[in-house]
Design a protein around this nucleic acid. Structure first.
Lengths: 344, 344
DNA sequence: CCTTAGCACTCGTTACAGCAGAGTGCTAAT
DNA sequence: ATTAGCACTCTGCTGTAACGAGTGCTAAGG
């Protein structure tokens, strides 16, 4: 739907004002705050038209207008100009990364906290995942006579662990030998390249079990396109007036649970280098229908990458959020490149 | 402070009623609900006396009484009788553990969720820690030319990881040899038994760095007498009327953050097999002054163990919480014994 | 034909008074 | 020591009125 120039400007002003006042904006205050060369009555007409087009709504007759979801959508897609962070803002953020330990988990947490603070809403960052998860090394540690801990390191430097129960007693020595053999034989392989059936299993089923579990862990790592994200700044977000009532706060809290969050993030729709905005009921799942995501993908196309984003009420400073998400995601991409070396 | 028999009974009734109504309890309703052979006037006198002794308070003149913190304390210490769970309740809980995978992390989460559901408040469970953390196995995985992932498995079956930066380039082969040597040399040792200075470090500082980092990880694992706990049921707790207002809910939410929680749990005061109750302002830290912990320690005295507990408003069903904490902690102790084998 | 002044009307918000209900504390009688 | 009785206090609710922000419509003006 195309909007006349003037109408579009009015819509933009309504969104801007509503975002920072959180109260419905009326025609008079609009005119006053933005020095439009128009009377409130004219603006009123335009607003009525915008409402007719579905861009604005009315909480009740005698209240000002607030943007509807399509209104936000139009604003984000056509009206808002994304401006890069100022040099200062960039430096403040960069500085925090420079000061922190050169450690992946650290960076993830830091990114989340930096982002949350910058936008005043909740931030989420997933750990990097590879498109192709390969086995790097396995380790087997005896726990009791017939049980062991399996540690699987994948080529994205992630460590996975699992407890195994064997049908027979096994010594640490045998476990170590087995681990060595597996490393030589299967290091660098994909889950699909591991044998599913074993010709002969000298160790009474132990080897088969281990291999199957390793394959399963690799698959699990791969399948989880998005790890459950690290979140930061939940309380900040909940301070927004839309979550004031006990009920809405509890609903929001539900939305923020990491398990739920993971399935709600449309990871596939977020291309590397771009920033996607999901507004209100564009979300499928219940508790998110009055919230918006601003999501970016960091990392390289072929190598490791993940999601970085912001969650907040639909009344959110989208422009600000988008530019911050973009910048933090760029920083992470750069750090990751250094960390893993060029591509893989 | 000793209370006359009758006065004590009245205190107990006030606590009971207040716990389940959440509104101040008046003399008349007390008499009516519990069929005391007394008139409301008498009860009124006794209540006034209890207030004089600091056991009860008054929100305002013409309201009923509510227990003060000392009142709760007296109730918990002298009045409340802890009754074991019924056979049915026990079975319901046990059943859930039987059905779940034989896996440590799983059990921890399950315990938290079972407990939270049973008491209608938040539950927390820490992963088991040993008094004496020993090195079980290390693993070194090359990441880039001069960096590697160090994986340390300790004798409590916990996996710790850390990224290392070397001053020189190192191959995976050398790393593996080094890891093997370290395992032979230091397997089963405590942090304090690792060498802090290295006579000669053939690998240009690599070996020294690795050993120091391993020692550091062991120390960290040991120092953290309490891991940051797994929590469950936060939303349930927040539904309690004391957290109704946006402010108090945000405060409670702050209290629930895992980092804060960890330092607020008086782990040293919780002996194995017993259940400790920390009421309101007995807590040192700010956000907990209107909440109570009910904490138990699971695991054996010498071997691995952790904390299992409930967090809720001071107005809490203490008796119920104590018996549930005790039972879940017993179940975990038993599971742990099976898992690690007898002691260690 | 677009713009605008004017005006009646609509609702939410706030303030306030009045009232009912729950409960206390005291006094005097048992 | 217990209890009936009663005055008193405080909260919470309800109804009313006034206010203010804002709309929608109409009619006049460029």
């Amino acid at each position: 739907m195309a909007l006349s120039d003037r109408r579009a400007r009015i819509l933009a002003f309504v969104v801007d004002d509503y975002v920072d006042s959180a109260t419905p904006v009326g025609s008079a205050s609009l005119v006053q705050r933005h020095g439009l060369g128009l009377s409130s009555a004219t603006v009123r007409n335009e607003m009525a038209a915008l409402e007719g087009q579905g861009m604005l709504t009315h909480p009740h007759t005698s209240a000002g207008r607030i943007p509807s979801n399509p209104g936000y959508r139009y604003y984000v897609s056509s009206l808002m100009e994304e401006q890069a962070l100022t040099r200062d803002e960039q430096m403040t953020i960069l500085h925090q990364f420079r000061q922190s330990a050169r450690d992946l988990e650290n960076w993830i947490g830091l990114a989340a906290s930096v982002l949350a603070n910058a936008v005043g809403n909740m931030a989420l960052v997933t750990e990097p995942r590879l498109k192709q998860v390969r086995l790097k090394q396995v380790q087997l540690v005896e726990l009791a006579e017939t049980s062991a801990l399996l540690v699987v390191v994948t080529n994205d430097a992630a460590v996975h662990q699992r407890t195994l129960e064997f049908p027979v007693a096994v010594t640490q020595e045998r476990l170590s030998r087995l681990a060595n053999r597996l490393n030589e034989q299967f290091g660098g392989k994909l889950a699909s390249e591991l044998p599913s059936e074993l010709a002969d299993d000298a160790l009474g089923g132990v080897e088969g079990l281990v291999i199957a579990t390793v394959a399963d862990e690799l698959l699990k790592a791969q399948r989880a396109a998005v790890e459950t994200p690290v979140t930061e700044g939940v309380r900040q977000m909940l301070r927004q007036p839309e979550f004031e009532g006990a009920d809405s706060m509890l609903d929001a809290l539900e939305a923020v649970e990491e398990r739920k969050l993971r399935s709600a993030i449309p990871a596939d729709d977020v291309a590397a280098g771009s920033v996607a905005v999901v507004i209100g009921d564009e979300n499928k799942e219940g508790p998110y229908t009055n919230m918006s995501f601003v999501l970016g993908r960091y990392g390289s196309d072929v190598g490791a990458g993940g999601i970085v984003g912001v969650l907040g009420p639909t009344r959110m400073g989208y422009s600000d959020a988008v530019s911050h998400v973009r910048y933090v995601s760029d920083v992470l991409t750069e750090l990751l490149r250094e960390f893993y070396g060029e591509v893989e």
